[in-house]
Nucleic acid binder design. Structure first.
Lengths: 216, 216
DNA sequence: GTCTATACTCTGATAGAC
DNA sequence: GTCTATCAGAGTATAGAC
């Protein structure tokens, strides 16, 4: 925080507090108090409290702008991976993605605000649920055609895999996140719930189950 | 609403509005305005706005008080059911449970408030996630012992089944619930998203997949 | 039990001096 | 760009007449 300018410090503090208490339960006074400036000073950097949330979502937008599905990516992937390897990769990506303290906080804001905020709802539905399912079902479809995966509806298989990941997110990131994900902005190495032994074992168990079920 | 006394009308209206906008975004004025009384009149029936939420959660508590696990229920169940029939029963229960308009609204309140409210968080974690998983894994364990289910960790199997149910809840009850579940208090037959053809097909697909994967 | 009137607090936001 | 001072509005809640 020390090396940030005031605007950045306001934004980081807002992310921290919104992730902890939700947008509505954090006042401009709370934010500026934590930053160490007066309320009115915030308005030299942001035109309103709402703009803080907008900027946070803009950042998420930018993070996701690079995530489109190249039509031929599935074809490339199946040349070097079997279903189990692909799923391991997905979990690695998930861990890396939600291992970034800043992103995990922003996703928690999305989770909290999705019932009130249309943009948060869209992020959640599209980027956290529907897009991954679509991507995985395309890869699975290609693997079925190649004959290295059981012949079934690829969408069903994608849901069998990814609904478990969402379960982990819902149960251990959203619900228990006060325990894990909300860390001081100054401590870069946040404890990732996925790294805990119990969840590692849950994931391993599920992967073993799916490896068997997905085999031809 | 016509045949209710004022206290009941206030409570039903509060459930309706909290489910739509969340506790914080509904004012006492909103509630009393919808009921057709003055703000101050509410305090003849409830000592505070907070008490409204408490009463709603008390109702949920009562609904769940009858739901304990008899130690021998799993034994009884497996005498008459195979894994597929048991899972169908679970889904039926889920549909019936979330088909009641009042309960679906209250669960939406739980989903919204669980990030802020410790009691809501506990309801969600215990009654919606952990308890069903425990119950199912016990039944699956008995079925494995009986030899009518694949020999695997029953907890893994329960998660494979129930994380999909939670996915349906998360994706179609929570996220899209403005479309389906929030109905006028006067219309008793709320449209249940689970009854839609798409979701019926998702469930059927997943059940076919699991029937095969759970077979010895 | 319902009303009118009002108290008090907190909110986001602005004006203008420095 | 930060401060002091201030504002209007909305929030929950209470007192007391009817």
């Amino acid at each position: 925080m020390k090396d940030m300018n005031t605007r950045e410090r306001i934004l980081e503090t807002a992310i921290e507090l919104f992730a902890k208490h939700g947008f509505n339960d954090v006042s401009v006074r709370d934010i500026t108090g934590a930053v160490g400036i007066k309320e009115s000073s915030l308005y030299n950097h942001f035109k309103s409290k709402q703009q803080l949330l907008d900027e946070i979502f803009n950042y998420l937008d930018r993070e996701f702008s690079g995530m489109s599905i190249p039509e031929d990516e599935a074809a490339k992937l199946i040349e070097v991976m079997d279903p189990a390897q692909f799923m391991d990769m997905c979990i690695m990506n998930f861990k890396m993605y939600f291992g970034k303290p800043r992103l995990i906080k922003i996703w928690r804001i999305v989770s909290i605000e999705r019932f009130r905020n249309a943009r948060a709802n869209e992020f959640f539905t599209k980027n956290l649920v529907d897009y991954p399912l679509l991507y995985q079902s395309k890869v699975f479809e290609a693997m079925i055609k190649k004959g290295i995966m059981v012949n079934a509806d690829p969408k069903v298989l994608a849901r069998a895999f990814y609904s478990f990941i969402l379960f982990i997110y819902m149960r251990y990131f959203e619900v228990d996140s006060s325990e894990y994900s909300i860390t001081e902005a100054d401590s870069p190495e946040a404890v990732n719930p996925v790294d805990s032994p119990e969840i590692q074992e849950m994931i391993k168990g599920h992967m073993d189950f799916l490896r068997r079920a997905f085999t031809v």
